[in-house]
Write a protein that binds this DNA or RNA. Structure first.
Length: 422
DNA sequence: TCTGGGGTCCTAGGACCC
DNA sequence: TCTGGGGTCCTAGGACCC
């Protein structure tokens, strides 16, 4: 029987910022999404002010000023590197580890045969804090869903000291489930929550005890799996090998809307080019590409339109030129004048490992293209991202995101390295 | 003035086949 | 008055996750 530990970094993005700028410690901090649009992370002090997850930044500006909340643009380069460090520390404790998201990992501790899993977790927690500067919380349970609930309580209850063990503690588990609102259960989103509330199933304990047939009727098999997990059955297993990606997407909401095909084409070319780079980085080739454009769904006065089209590649590819070609081709098929477009994106589909792809008559010209792409990637790696690009991407283009509050890339750029003053 | 981005899995329904 | 049943594959959309 597996023993899941869910290790989750507390307020991850805000904590990363604090590691390199200790002046932020003790202060309310929020981290913002693309375009500095909404709040995607909050320090405890910011949560205490009632700032909700996902709230549009402009709506809380008065609050920000009044309480001197520090607002930062998100610095994904920094967060990704810090995430890698946390995983490295955790891997030194056990190889049975699944990286679930940028700030969460599931571990299976059962193979370690620990006499005191709680103590082991407290030690892991202290080590991550010492070696990375990041505070984490750890929940223990016999299923992933239960370890999620344990983790939530580890964060909420100060006396837990960052670790909550629900495995083989039936009484503690009952009261934990009773105090967990049903909408907080992993896998229960807003839609299912509404249906369950209508049935009087308000908390995780009631969900656990609900008849399977009823749950199947309102939520299908997905819901039944959640119920079984709450009962302690490990339906979801540990997935140590990250599954191969099936799609790869680059999209952005523009800094402001545009009616010009030229603007949107520039953006789509840039997205296509970035998807191609990412594809090569991951050692993949794509079998098809889709491009989508849409107007501003929040602008009630604007005429709305959203369109997409896809094209297969004859032979799966990761060649930037080919991918840009397909993206501009599909864009011209879906383009219609007279709309103010606010968002666009490029999706690569049917991904397969690069060396699995079919060979064809044009293999040698393909090899030249591959060498060209390898050179391109190397130059960009050496001289900075964007040193060589396809097409002209003006820095002032309207589709560029606004990120006015970006912190330095402390750990990945020599020029941003923190300096210790003596 | 201002509302994110990148994914996965599941299901229902249509097209098609014998 | 009457119009099968069962299977597969594909796609779009729903729901959810962080």
């Amino acid at each position: 029987m597996p023993l899941f530990a869910l290790v989750d970094c507390n307020n991850f993005y805000a904590s990363c910022e604090r590691v390199f700028d200790p002046r932020l410690i003790g202060k309310p901090v929020v981290v913002l999404s693309n375009n500095d649009g909404c709040v995607v992370a909050r320090s405890n002090e910011a949560k205490a002010l009632g700032i909700a997850m996902g709230v549009p930044f402009f709506k809380i500006r008065p609050l920000i000023r009044e309480h001197r909340v520090v607002a930062l643009s998100s610095n994904y380069t920094l967060y990704a590197d810090m995430s890698r460090r946390v995983v490295e520390v955790l891997s030194s404790f056990t190889p049975d580890l699944e990286v679930y998201s940028i700030d969460e990992s599931f571990l299976d501790l059962a193979p370690l045969n620990l006499s005191d899993p709680g103590r082991f977790c407290r030690e892991m927690r202290a080590t991550v804090l010492r070696w990375t500067g990041l505070p984490v919380s750890i929940g223990l349970g016999s299923s992933k869903t239960l370890s999620k609930i344990a983790n939530r309580l580890a964060k909420k209850k100060a006396e837990a000291g960052g670790v909550m063990d629900l495995a083989s503690h039936p009484v503690r588990t009952e009261s934990a489930l009773a105090s967990t609102p049903v909408g907080e259960v992993w896998g229960i989103g807003p839609r299912s929550e509404a249906k369950l509330l209508a049935l009087g199933i308000t908390d995780a304990l009631r969900l656990r005890n609900a008849p399977e047939g009823l749950i199947r009727k309102v939520m299908g098999n997905v819901g039944v799996r959640t119920v079984l997990e709450l009962r302690g059955m490990a339906i979801h297993t540990l997935d140590t090998e990250p599954a191969q990606k099936q799609t790869l997407c680059r999209s952005r909401t523009f800094g402001r809307a545009t009616r010009e095909l030229g603007d949107v084409r520039d953006a789509v070319v840039a997205f296509a080019s970035r998807t191609a780079e990412k594809l090569r980085e991951d050692g993949l080739v794509a079998g098809a590409l889709a491009t989508f454009i849409m107007t501003d769904r929040f602008d009630a006065d604007a005429r709305q339109r959203s369109a997409s089209a896809s094209d297969p590649f004859g032979i799966p590819t990761n060649d930037t030129q080919e991918i840009i070609g397909a993206a501009t081709r599909t864009l011209s098929r879906i383009w219609k004048d007279g709309y103010a477009y606010r968002k666009a994106g490029v999706l690569l589909l049917d991904l397969v490992a690069g060396n699995d792809r079919l060979r064809d008559l044009f293999e040698s010209s393909r090899k030249r293209a591959m060498r060209r792409m390898a050179a391109l990637d190397e130059i960009n790696a050496r001289f900075g991202h964007g040193a060589i690009t396809f097409g002209l991407s003006s820095l002032k283009a309207p589709w560029r995101s606004r990120t006015n509050r970006l912190s330095p890339c402390y750990t990945t750029e020599w020029t941003d390295l923190p300096v210790v003053q003596s």
